[in-house]
Design a protein around this nucleic acid. Structure first.
Length: 757
DNA sequence: TCCTCACGGGG
DNA sequence: GTGTACGTGAGGA
């Protein structure tokens, strides 16, 4: 028997084999072990007893060894235990095919635990997760006989794998979507190799030598999913020269096709993916939010979701939160439904009318305000779910029927909302994440706790501290999980979703914000604006953090939810609608905090489709405003802003603005033939289509506005655009518009005239 | 004036 | 392997 202590890299099932494969990195960092372990994987079927007996006979006579048993299980939405037929296999890799067959032969039965990733079974069974510290006992045949996890996903400072994790980066010299790469740069530790792509023989020989010499645990590429790995694999196949991208020789790289889907209110494109076995492949350009939280965030997501690192890198946070909920269910012995078969409860017409209210949004007081404090609820919706135990299975439980007091929403409000008034938040029990909580709050609570601790650490650590960046990335990864968790409640295909729970959360949110508003008004504040989970308040004489502390404390007392002072503005400007200057809009504003930092929302500089040059000019103007010590000094900045703008106008006229800074980048929302009105982005995409470059919905297209038809020039066309064709008047309009946004609150008008000489 | 299309928010 | 809100602004018919 061999004893090994180390970090878990991966768990997966090999076709045709018993149990699962585990890759372990030992604690000295010198060895990688490929081990095997038994893992029983089971799914359950429920239905009429006669049909279950038929299924039993059907499975009994099949060649694949399965063990069948009858039993009772808990189903989330029912108080009664459910009788199920449990089908267990010893070859986890065989389960998907077996289940497909069964569900086709017996489509009338209800299935549970049927389509879970094998890592979830392993996590639920053994308490594992990627990069978990494990102690294992291994027999002579390489089978794990005992496994003991030495930490949990909730460890704030797990023993760092750090330098032990060997990294190889591969990077082509140019973006393959725009030009044909000629070289690829490989780096491992201090070594770096510049390899020519042609001729291919030495390329493959060298790459193979590099892979064998460094034996990386992580292959970090740019465009590795969408181009480099498929290219190399094809090259290797064609030439017959082996290229050991996988560490596990028994497996071949796994391809997943490109796809386009709709989520978060927009079309999202995810390129083709290449998964490796025995080592991780992450393509920084095809990974979700890589720019936001990087590898550190991906590893954190792996730890808390227990999904494989290669998967979390490419999955939306929605699947992460979904995996966590399934894990909670598995551990609690609650059945995980196959797909989502939970229909919304029938609604009366009146209920439909009030349904689907979102967050509370006020119209701000237009104009410039000084000494305004912004108070935000921390992770408001997740906090509400945890605090008030809102979960798909708890939300329809009848509240105390004796209490018939009318609430703000009238008598048609959902029971959960009545419960809100029956139980003032500050007195209500529960929501502690302990036993007896709903599935969703139980899943959320440790996440909320960990995120808050991470953020506390960030406040305590000095700016130079080396751990800061990692904490920041991890906190950011958590943020996304928490944000999507709320949306997932209302998603019709979520396994553990229910629209009523979603509505209950927003109802609690509105009530919470209203209580905060009342609290502020009771303390003599003027409330300038409310937005979903934030509040802007002002009171003469209150301008320091300590002045607002009593208000914060009282809000926590009255709502039961955590709040934070986002900051105190020296001044903040709420902008009017462009279409009607008398109408305020809820989310267009900018301001400067007391520490001199800027905050802006909804203006040009925040938009992804604003040309870089426009962003830079607007940002420069805002930076200048931020230098004013007080709102009173803002007027004095006008001459300098005027100079800035004139110079920008002159740069444009004289052709001194780099074309690349004038590029607009927009996402295609549909296939080209589906446009009823061809948008500029669609016209640019059509130009690319004409030269054989097809773009899918969700992909970005970069273009310039040009004179004449079709009015745009796609940046990725083979020929460089002629600078003389740039539509300068159009860019001038964009410039004036962006300047107006900034200057409007200062009372400056006729901005266009500033550009005349 | 109406229609279509693209973007943001969270921290 | 997944969140089909909702409002604003821009541009063209």
């Amino acid at each position: 028997m061999t004893e090994i202590t180390g970090w878990l890299l991966d768990v997966y099932a090999r076709p045709g084999e018993e149990g699962v494969i585990l890759w372990l990195l030992d604690e000295t960092g010198s060895e990688r072990y490929c081990l095997r372990q038994a893992l029983p994987v089971a799914f359950h079927a429920a239905g009429p007893p006669a049909r279950l007996r038929q299924l039993w006979r059907y499975l009994y006579h099949r060649p694949l060894p399965v063990s069948l048993s009858r039993g009772e299980r808990r189903e989330l939405f029912s108080d009664q235990p459910l009788t199920v037929l449990t089908v267990q296999v010893t070859q986890p890799a065989a389960q998907p095919a077996l289940f497909r067959e069964v569900s086709r032969a017996f489509p009338d039965l209800t299935y549970f635990d049927a389509d879970l990733p094998v890592t979830l079974h392993h996590a639920a069974h053994y308490g594992t997760f990627p990069l978990a510290r494990l102690h294992v006992s291994v027999d002579e045949g390489g089978w794990i006989q005992e496994l003991e996890p030495l930490d949990t996903p909730w460890e704030l400072d797990p023993v760092p794998v750090g330098e032990h994790l060997r990294l190889l980066t591969l990077e082509p010299d140019v973006d393959p979507a725009h030009a044909a790469p000629t070289r690829v740069l490989a780096r491992a530790g201090r070594a770096s190799y510049d390899l020519a792509l042609q001729p291919s023989r030495p390329l493959l020989v060298n790459l193979r030598a590099i892979l064998e010499r460094h034996d990386p645990d992580l292959l970090l590429t740019t465009w590795g999913d969408t181009w480099l790995l498929p290219y190399l694999i094809e090259l290797s196949r064609f030439s017959g020269l082996p290229l050991p991208l996988n560490r596990d020789p028994a497996c071949r790289p796994l391809y997943r096709p490109e796809r386009t889907y709709f989520a978060y209110g927009q079309v999202i494109y995810r390129g083709q993916q290449v998964y490796l076995f025995g080592r991780w492949h992450v393509d920084a350009h095809n990974a979700v939010l890589y720019h936001d939280y990087g590898m550190e965030g991906i590893l954190e997501l792996g730890r808390v979701t227990s999904l494989p690192v290669q998967a979390v890198a490419r999955l939306s946070p929605g699947s992460g939160i979904s995996a966590m909920q399934m894990l909670t269910a598995l551990r609690e012995g609650v059945l995980v439904p196959w797909h989502k078969q939970q229909a919304e409860h029938f609604k009366t017409a009146r209920e439909l009318l009030r349904a689907d209210q979102g967050g509370l949004v006020y119209q701000p007081v237009i104009g410039l305000h000084r000494d305004v404090a912004e108070i935000d609820f921390i992770s408001m919706y997740p906090s509400i779910m945890a605090r008030f135990n809102i979960s798909p299975e708890t939300v329809l439980k009848k509240p105390d029927q004796n209490n018939q007091s009318l609430n703000r929403w009238g008598s048609s409000a959902a029971p959960a909302i009545q419960a809100l008034n029956s139980f003032p938040p500050s007195q209500r029990e529960g929501g502690t994440g302990g036993m007896g909580d709903g599935l969703v709050p139980q899943t959320l609570q440790p996440l909320l706790d960990k995120r808050i601790t991470l953020k506390q650490r960030l406040v305590e650590l000095p700016a130079w501290h080396p751990k800061r960046a990692a904490y920041k990335a991890r906190a950011s990864a958590h943020k996304w999980l928490l944000v999507t968790c709320f949306g997932y409640l209302g998603y019709k295909n979520a396994r553990f979703g229910r629209i009523e729970a979603h509505e209950a959360v927003t109802a609690f949110g509105r009530e919470t914000l209203l209580r905060a508003k009342e609290t502020a008004e009771d303390q003599g504040y003027e409330v300038l604006h409310l937005y979903v989970d934030g509040m802007w308040v002002r009171r003469p004489g209150a301008s320091r953090v300590a002045d607002f502390q009593p208000l914060l404390d009282e809000i926590v007392e009255r709502t039961g939810l955590p709040v934070a002072l986002d900051g105190i503005y020296r001044w903040v400007a709420f902008l009017p609608s462009r279409l009607d200057a008398r109408v305020p809009v809820p989310n267009r504003y900018f301001g400067v905090f007391q520490d001199g930092s800027l905050k802006m929302r909804g203006i040009e500089a925040r938009r992804q489709d604003t040309p870089l040059w426009i962003v830079q000019v607007q940002q420069a103007m805002l930076d200048r405003l931020a230098k004013a010590r007080s709102a009173g000094e803002l007027g004095e900045t006008l001459p300098e802003l005027r100079r800035l703008l004139r110079k920008a106008g002159l740069d444009l006229r004289r052709g001194r603005v780099p074309l690349a800074s004038l590029l607009v980048s927009q996402k295609l929302s549909r296939e080209l033939d589906e446009y009823r009105v061809p948008s500029p982005a669609a016209r640019a995409a059509a130009q690319l289509e004409a030269v054989g470059k097809h773009l899918r919905p969700g992909q970005r297209v970069r273009f310039l506005y040009t004179l004449g038809e079709p009015g745009v020039y796609a940046w990725d066309l083979p020929d460089r655009p002629n600078p003389a064709t740039v539509d300068r008047r159009y860019y001038r309009r964009l410039l004036v518009r962006a300047a107006e946004t900034v200057l409007q609150p200062l009372g400056a008008d006729e901005i266009g005239l500033w550009l005349e000489t």
